[in-house]
């Protein structure tokens, strides 16, 4: 029985730099896993390798036992990986609701044929899923606002809602707490916990150590592109290598 998501000796070099080096990890269904590491540790690159934005130079990525490395981002997204972006990438000039629909549209694989009346069921499903996702993050009241006009905190949730509308089997959140204050971060923690309780598999990439330690069951630590620790938050906190990696770069 293979894991839900697995990377095997995954590597990516840029020029001579090994951004991700020989990373093997396995995520089981229903897990909430934190991925941490000092700046430049290769977290986002690893993430881009999984979601197809970057192609690996070595190793492979498997989702539910099937190789997904080398596929396009939209193929990977349709196979069930939903993501958010570290530097907020919402669609600014369309409404909040229309932003969320994009996730659902991707999932329904809508095409030119959608203008025909017999495709109405698809549109209805998209509307329905988008409402659900907006409701889940509590942005329903802002649905018809332009995405550029809502607050920074709300945009973060909008990104998550858009990813949720993709009905992903695996949700990858890239630094969702960046730029949020303490209260907002606490809300976010509760929200991620709730998503997890509802049965979602989540990988959380975070800088905010407290957030990760408080909600994740398992933490994977990257440093200089390599996986240096993988275990419960308690174990990671006591790991000498982790301490060294963090202290070494003054974090």
């Amino acid at each position: 029985m293979s894991a839900f998501l697995e990377t095997r000796q995954l590597g990516r070099t840029f020029g001579g730099l090994k951004a991700v080096d020989d990373v093997s990890m396995a995520i089981e269904q229903g897990e909430l896993v934190g991925l941490i590491g000092p700046n430049g540790a290769g977290k986002t690159t690893l993430f881009n390798l999984i979601s197809g934005f970057t192609t690996p130079t070595s190793g492979e990525v498997l989702l539910k036992g099937e190789r997904i490395d080398g596929l396009t981002p939209h193929d990977i997204a349709r196979r069930g990986i939903g993501r958010t972006f570290q530097n907020l990438r919402i669609f600014p000039n369309i409404s909040v609701f229309d932003n969320v629909t994009v996730g659902a549209i991707g999932h329904e694989n809508i095409g030119l044929g959608s203008i025909f009346p017999w495709q109405k069921a698809k549109s209805d499903r998209i509307t329905h899923k988008s409402f659900e996702a907006l409701e889940a993050v509590g942005l329903l009241a802002d649905a018809d606002d332009l995405a550029a006009n809502i607050s920074y905190g709300k945009r973060k949730y909008l990104e998550i809602a858009r990813a949720l509308a993709m009905q992903p089997d695996l949700l990858i959140l890239d630094e969702p707490a960046a730029g949020l204050n303490e209260t907002e971060t606490r809300h976010l923690a509760d929200f991620i916990r709730r998503l997890h309780r509802e049965g979602r598999t989540i990988i959380l990439i975070e800088h905010d150590m407290r957030l990760v330690m408080s909600i994740c069951q398992r933490v994977i630590v990257l440093a200089s592109g390599r996986k240096i620790c993988d275990g419960t938050p308690e174990r990671v906190q006591q790991d000498a290598g982790v301490l060294e990696a963090y202290l070494g770069v003054d974090e």
């Binding site: 939209h74 972006f85 669609f91 369309i94 994009v102 996730g103 549209i105 694989n109």
Partner: peptide, 19 residues
């Protein structure tokens, strides 16, 4: 909406499963 998404940010639209 899908077309608008690719106008706004085509890479991001791609990550949402839009071909």
């Amino acid at each position: 909406n899908a077309l608008r998404a690719l106008r706004e940010d085509d890479q991001c639209a791609d990550a949402m499963g839009i071909n």
